[in-house]
Computed example of a mutant assay.
Amino acid sequence: MDQPGFTTSLVAGGVAGVSVDLILFPLDTIKTRLQSPQGFNKAGGFRGIYAGVPSAAIGSFPNAAAFFITYEYVKWFLHTDSSSYLMPAKHMLAASAGEVIPFSLVQFPLWESLKALWSWRQDHVVDSWQSAVCGAFAGGFAAAVTTPLDVAKTRIMLAKAGSSTASGNVLSALHGVWRTQGLSGLFAGVFPRMAAISLGGFIFLGAYDQTRSLLLELGKESP
């Protein structure tokens, strides 16, 4: 396995991060307001859903670039044969090194596994659009299973200062939602979250693979 290019991973990751933030920022705002204990309308409804887009886009370039540089280098460092049963563990370690959140631990191993399966079925490496499709499925699944944690995070962020929820205890926040709203509360906003992150996975991972492929191709053509 060739050592990944530093500049290639940096630029491709940054482009992917900016692309997904510019397109999906409004959906994330709507999802957060759906999870608010005040209710959707009192939390702002559809008003100002584009507020903060420029700053988010500016911040997403270095964040996504740093994530993918780390992800690619850890994958390279931990390289094992593609048929090895350790491959999922390698992808989990690479994702957690780049961004330590449960979402990445689900999404990236699944993305890599789906790409490997598709490559095996068609007997050649997946194209960028196929990688994007795999990213959409992986993102949607990861979004669904981690929604309760996202609800807890939103409740903690919006909690009144001094309350038990504001202390940052995730289990306490989850218990509070379960006690007052049950299962539906734990999965509040799951469908817009799945839609947004599926589309985000398609754009983010597809744009990353496409940009990376173009840069590597340009590198080969350069004298």
Score class of each variant (00 low, 15 high):
57 A>N: 14
100 V>C: 01
76 W>F: 14
59 G>V: 14
84 S>N: 04
79 H>K: 13
59 G>Q: 10
87 M>A: 05
56 A>D: 06
58 I>G: 12
76 W>D: 04
65 A>N: 14
57 A>Q: 13
63 N>Q: 12
70 T>I: 06
95 A>N: 12
69 I>Y: 13
94 A>Q: 11
97 A>Q: 00
84 S>G: 09
83 S>R: 03
92 M>V: 14
56 A>V: 12
95 A>Q: 11
92 M>N: 05
74 V>G: 08
58 I>F: 04
61 F>K: 08
85 Y>G: 01
76 W>P: 01
64 A>V: 01
74 V>E: 08
73 Y>F: 04
58 I>A: 14
66 A>S: 12
99 E>R: 07
85 Y>A: 03
84 S>F: 05
69 I>K: 07
74 V>H: 09
64 A>N: 07
60 S>N: 12
58 I>R: 08
77 F>A: 11
63 N>L: 15
66 A>M: 11
82 S>I: 09
86 L>N: 06
57 A>H: 11
92 M>L: 14
90 K>I: 09
56 A>N: 07
79 H>T: 06
67 F>R: 06
96 S>T: 10
93 L>T: 15
78 L>H: 04
84 S>I: 00
80 T>K: 11
68 F>D: 03
76 W>N: 05
94 A>E: 12
83 S>E: 06
74 V>M: 05
87 M>T: 12
84 S>L: 02
85 Y>P: 00
64 A>I: 07
66 A>Y: 02
75 K>Q: 13
84 S>V: 03
85 Y>T: 02
83 S>N: 10
89 A>N: 02
61 F>N: 15
89 A>C: 05
68 F>V: 04
70 T>W: 08
95 A>G: 15
80 T>H: 05
87 M>L: 04
98 G>Q: 03
81 D>F: 01
67 F>P: 00
63 N>M: 15
85 Y>E: 13
83 S>W: 03
76 W>A: 02
56 A>G: 04
70 T>G: 00
75 K>M: 07
94 A>H: 13
95 A>D: 07
79 H>E: 11
88 P>L: 04
56 A>R: 07
94 A>K: 09
86 L>A: 12
93 L>R: 12
72 E>N: 06
95 A>I: 10
66 A>Q: 08
100 V>L: 06
72 E>P: 01
76 W>R: 02
68 F>C: 05
63 N>E: 07
93 L>W: 11
64 A>K: 09
83 S>C: 01
73 Y>T: 00
55 S>F: 11
81 D>S: 14
70 T>C: 13
85 Y>W: 03
94 A>L: 11
87 M>W: 03
73 Y>M: 06
93 L>S: 15
58 I>H: 02
95 A>R: 09
91 H>F: 04
71 Y>C: 02
68 F>N: 13
74 V>K: 05
59 G>A: 13
88 P>T: 09
92 M>S: 14
75 K>T: 08
93 L>Q: 10
76 W>S: 10
90 K>S: 01
88 P>N: 03
94 A>I: 06
81 D>M: 07
71 Y>A: 00
72 E>S: 04
69 I>L: 05
91 H>D: 15
74 V>R: 01
90 K>N: 11
98 G>P: 03
55 S>G: 02
71 Y>F: 15
72 E>I: 00
71 Y>Q: 04
77 F>K: 13
68 F>I: 09
67 F>L: 05
97 A>T: 08
68 F>G: 06
67 F>D: 00
67 F>S: 03
69 I>W: 13
97 A>L: 08
82 S>L: 00
93 L>A: 15
64 A>Q: 08
74 V>F: 02
62 P>W: 15
